[in-house]
Design a binder for these strands. Structure first.
Lengths: 154, 154
DNA sequence: TCCATTTAGTTTCATTTGTAACTGATGTCC
DNA sequence: GGACATCAGTTACAAATGAAACTAAATGGA
């Protein structure tokens, strides 16, 4: 076990491990989405949220995906251009617009969602049932901790 | 528990969770290193490796840090400019150069390493001893799985 | 020995991403 | 009701990143 005072070994260092793992996973996925559907990860995230629940505004999306509003704006613009997303004016506030997948967008979503889940399953085959639960719980805790720290570091 | 056929909910989706967590952690760290030491994360990784074991070549560094050779080249160039790293020609092969931290570089390393470990400890306070072990083991398994999958997806 | 191939590392260029400034609309409070 | 702050979303610009082309050195046959 590592204790305070121990040396810093890069591949035992949590932030580094997270980054390396996340990058490898994301890159593999990005390649697949890009090749098969001409879709970047931010675009896919927007679709993933709207596929389940249409009618959100850009800032609700930013909230749900944890991406910043610029990334959302770009993803929405590109998805609109490719005919996969459509915006409706919201009554009452001319700034906000409710976003929906078009039928074409929905069709893409319904193709990708199972693939995404299958990919995740593949990753997860390495883990037993109880390990999967443990992982989810650990990620929850780290999420909370990192939020708290992030605020401090800023 | 989620089963095949279940809906894809972004914030239960492992690749997304990893990415969100890793980004938050990395950003917090990057901010700190940048502000205090004028050091990017790739540069810091290079220092972290060389601080423990000097004399590696650029490709050995690429291996150790999992960054690609372009990133290494840039980090090394910048660290050299700032007087924190020095290269020695290697006898026998004129292409390779052995890389070392300068005394100044080493001094920086010795300042940062404890900070980095402390940050990690802070994150880890959220976890019990046994949870930390469990996390390390899970990350190992996911690492392996992701390597295998990455090759397939490519 | 000489040519083709591989390897180490750098440079170049296109794309992505992040930050800040901006536009237009709404809310606020005196 | 008007001046000012705030909010939703976009645009503009700079920095980071990635892929591919490139340079120079070493290797490996025939």
């Amino acid at each position: 076990m590592r204790r305070a005072g121990d040396a810093l070994v890069l591949d035992r260092f949590l932030p580094y491990r997270l980054s390396a793992l996340s990058n490898r996973v994301s890159r593999a996925i990005a390649r697949a989405y890009e090749a098969a559907f001409d879709l970047s990860i931010p675009e896919w995230r927007v679709m993933a949220v709207l596929g389940r629940e249409g009618g959100l505004t850009a800032s609700a999306l930013a909230d749900a995906t944890q991406m910043d509003k610029v990334a959302i704006s770009r993803a929405v613009a590109r998805l609109t251009r490719s005919g996969r997303l459509k915006a409706r004016a919201e009554a009452g506030d001319a700034r906000r617009r409710a976003l929906f997948l078009t039928p074409r967008g929905l069709a893409v979503y319904e193709q990708i969602a199972p693939l995404a889940l299958a990919y995740e399953q593949q990753l997860m085959t390495a883990l037993s049932q109880s390990e999967r639960h443990a992982l989810a719980a650990l990620l929850d805790k780290l999420d909370h901790a990192s939020r708290a720290l992030g605020d401090i570091a800023r």
